[in-house]
């Protein structure tokens, strides 16, 4: 009987996730959109100029962004100062598209990530009433090995297992 109820709880959640996946059709990418009350010229400068990029992204970048270049710098975000940011610049189309590759979750300083798969990050700009519509797409999560997932996530996963065990105990 316990197993039965337990399954119902599980299946409810699974259906929800499976349905979400169906609508997304892929878990390979993330897409974000934001309206910025600043001109595309201004936004382009903030994104394509390495020093400006470093100011808002919070990284100490000293080399120029150029297609094909690899740019490295120390993260300046509080609590992450021991980490390096490394970007392989791909496309720069003025006021339209800036794209680069990087290693997501490269948070372990003992690991050499250089031979590992990267994700592609695209900043797409469009002029919009009152400013700029910015779309950010990060794709390629398919190729990231499971053991490269963030630790925070492993902790969440453990929490989830615990939660299920609690449900099992109470039904």
């Amino acid at each position: 009987m316990m197993m039965c109820n337990f399954s119902v709880a599980l299946l409810g959640a699974a259906t929800q996730y499976a349905t979400t996946e169906l609508h997304m059709t892929t878990t390979d990418r993330i897409e974000k959109q934001i309206h910025l009350a600043a001109s595309p010229e201004r936004v382009w400068r903030a994104i394509s100029d390495a020093r400006e990029f470093g100011q808002w992204f919070r990284a100490d970048l000293r080399d120029d962004f150029l297609p094909g270049a690899t740019v490295r710098g120390r993260i300046t975000y509080e609590g992450y100062e021991h980490l390096m940011l490394e970007m392989q610049i791909e496309t720069m189309e003025r006021e339209r598209l800036f794209s680069f590759r990087w290693h997501p979750y490269a948070v372990d300083t003992d690991v050499d990530y250089t031979q590992e798969p990267t994700t592609l990050v695209e900043f797409r700009l469009e002029r919009a009433p009152g400013g700029t519509k910015l779309t950010v797409i990060e794709s390629g999560f398919d190729r990231i090995p499971a053991d490269r997932r963030p630790r925070a996530f492993e902790m969440n996963s453990a929490g989830w297992t615990e939660q299920l065990e609690n449900i099992a105990r109470h039904v």
Partner: peptide, 28 residues
Amino acid sequence: APLEEARRCLDLVSAQWDRTLAQLKDFV
């Protein structure tokens, strides 16, 4: 479990982008 993990993984990256883009918005 693997489905749940997949979603959590992307949710985490998604939250990081929200934070980063808020910083960009403030900046420009």
